Amino acid sequence: MEIKPTVDIINPAYQSTKGRLFAGTSGLLNTSASKHAWAQLVNPLHSNVNLYVSFFALTNFSTKLVTADFVVNADPPGTPTLSSDVSVLKLASKHTPVGQIFYNPSVSGSFSGGKFVGTRALSPERTELGFRVDGRLIIEPGTNAMFFLCSRSPATSQIEFEWFESEAIF
């Protein structure tokens, strides 16, 4: 009997072939001893899709340490800005994302509500994967995932999210 070769395809790659994989970044996030910043991936309330987060990356462009609290379903302080830096990763696809990246580059105060998940320390002048979740983090309609950034000295950072969208849970 002949053995036929098999190929394993990771789910984000499969979702990309369908035009359902998206990536985007916040704007630059400026923190200091008196100012914080945040970025969040939001699924609008009546979207009728789930956002399955593949990964997020946190970049610290400065020479100072930055910390990032990861929280879900929190209300951030300040006025949100909608990021225009979001794209489908199947480059010829006409799909547009339902998920939205909001951020505020410099705010006073802290978030309210939500559930604290963990903290990441962002080393100076590095990009760190927040954690690779490969679709296990599911942002349902009306929910969000956010990074809230702090530093003791002036610092500049940026957050990147990658996710795919689907109506069904696998």
Rank of each mutant, 00 (worst) to 15 (best):
G130S: 11
G130A: 09
F131M: 14
F131P: 06
R132N: 12
R132V: 13
R132I: 09
R132Y: 11
V133F: 14
V133M: 15
D134W: 14
G135S: 11
G135P: 12
G135Q: 10
R136K: 13
L137E: 08
I138P: 00
I138W: 06
I139R: 05
I139H: 06
I139M: 03
E140I: 02
E140H: 02
E140C: 00
P141C: 03
P141N: 12
P141F: 04
P141A: 08
P141Y: 07
P141S: 12
P141G: 07
G142R: 11
G142S: 13
T143E: 14
T143K: 15
N144T: 07
N144I: 10
A145T: 13
A145L: 10
A145K: 10
A145C: 13
M146G: 10
M146D: 00
M146S: 09
M146F: 00
M146Y: 02
F147P: 09
F147H: 11
F148R: 04
F148V: 08
F148M: 11
F148T: 05
L149P: 09
C150S: 13
C150E: 10
C150K: 06
C150R: 06
C150W: 01
S151E: 08
S151F: 04
S151D: 06
S151G: 11
S151L: 04
R152F: 00
R152H: 06
S153D: 09
S153C: 01
S153Y: 02
S153F: 00
P154D: 03
P154Q: 01
P154F: 00
P154N: 04
A155C: 10
A155I: 08
T156R: 13
T156G: 14
S157P: 14
S157T: 09
S157C: 12
Q158R: 12
Q158V: 11
I159F: 15
I159W: 15
I159Q: 15
E160Q: 05
E160P: 01
E160H: 00
F161V: 05
F161K: 06
E162S: 06
E162G: 07
E162W: 02
E162Q: 07
E162N: 02
E162Y: 00
W163A: 03
W163V: 05
W163H: 06
